[in-house]
Nucleic acid binder design. Structure first.
Lengths: 196, 196
DNA sequence: CTTGCAACATACCAAGCGGTCGGTTATTAT
DNA sequence: ATAATAACCGACCGCTTGGTATGTTGCAAG
């Protein structure tokens, strides 16, 4: 990787962390410059504006990270158990800072979907991709599932609850609340199956 | 109501609307001053700082509004049906701007719980009050409910899902997504009861 | 060897922010 | 009537923000 590309990646990584911690609007370019030990000229050589940097972070950092982790959870033989294990391991591995900072995509949806069309469309596309992943994996085991389920609706319900749980936990600063909601969510997910 | 108190209330109302629309940090005092047609001196006569104004909005506008609406939903003879009707009527009455702006408390939790201790504690207290309301009303009909339910967990699950649904809907700018999640949430809530 | 452009650095800018302060008007108590 | 204070005004301040324009360095092709 060339020096220039290294600089670019470094900016993206640091910016992703700052945006995760403080949100997009509250993220200061000068702090990114300090952390990267570069000048303003360097940043504006690689990105035309703050919002374009934000888009790049979304597309090159958040999106692949997000798809990877859901993909692997849903590719289990039994996606229902895959999801539950994924959620449970989240609560176990979750550090305190992650409880406080929440999910980057959920944060951006809250903050920017209403304020910037570019962010809104990217977030929307991400949500639809994620929902499709869930629907596809549930369809794989449709013979084990209750009849009458609207899978797309179920997918959005799961994502909504997970996001709601992270937001809710921010005020208590510990993962107890998160764990409770996740536990209830796993009950719901497992109840999607017909009783054996 | 005295003129001074009228001014104060006007500031609170306008500030509540601005914070709802743009979040706390992005809310500009000068815009509030313009909308209220008052001077900066007037505002700082009634409130010592921007953050104190934010606290006042939370306590005097958002909190009572929030408790009122949940209280009345949960005081129905059957709180399960009360909740479902409440949620369903939300989707029907919801204007486009409300879809876009989301729930004021959920927004503040996302934005400020991590950034300001005063907001965090107020939000936490609000969440606990709300959960207690739900738990109390479900306990009233515990004979109709499935055994083994952890009511506190159920309460937080409901709130988390509702909040997640509002956030999720922001990116699509319409209430279709919200309605889907709410529909699934009502299925979940009604399934709390034992089959008759 | 030199020409040229990518890859930076630095100084600067206007705008907006929350907040302060001295002054003015209106109201109320004595 | 007067004194005191509440209620309000508006100019000003320091600071930070995203963004720009000019200048410098270094590598790489011709």
């Amino acid at each position: 990787m060339s020096d220039a590309e290294l600089t670019r990646q470094n900016i993206l990584t640091v910016a992703a962390d700052e945006i995760h911690q403080h949100g997009f609007k509250a993220t200061s370019l000068s702090i990114i410059l300090n952390r990267c030990e570069i000048s303003k000229g360097a940043l504006y050589h690689h990105f035309t504006s703050k919002i374009e940097l934000g888009y790049a972070v979304f597309e090159e950092i958040y999106t692949p990270m997000f798809l990877d982790v859901w993909q692997s959870a849903l590719s289990a033989d039994d996606p229902v158990e895959g999801l539950c294990e994924f959620f449970t391991s989240m609560t176990e591995q979750m550090s305190c800072s992650e409880v406080v900072c929440g999910c980057p995509l959920n944060n951006l949806c809250e903050e920017m979907a209403n304020a910037d069309e570019g962010f809104r469309l990217r977030i929307l596309s991400m949500q639809e991709q994620l929902n499709q992943l869930i629907v596809n994996s549930l369809e794989r085991i449709h013979v084990d599932l209750r009849t009458g389920l609207i899978l797309s609706q179920v997918g959005y319900f799961i994502v909504a609850t997970l996001n709601g749980a992270t937001t809710l936990s921010k005020s208590s600063r510990n993962k107890e609340l998160f764990q409770q909601v996740i536990a209830e969510l796993c009950l719901y997910i497992r109840a999607l199956k017909v009783v054996a």
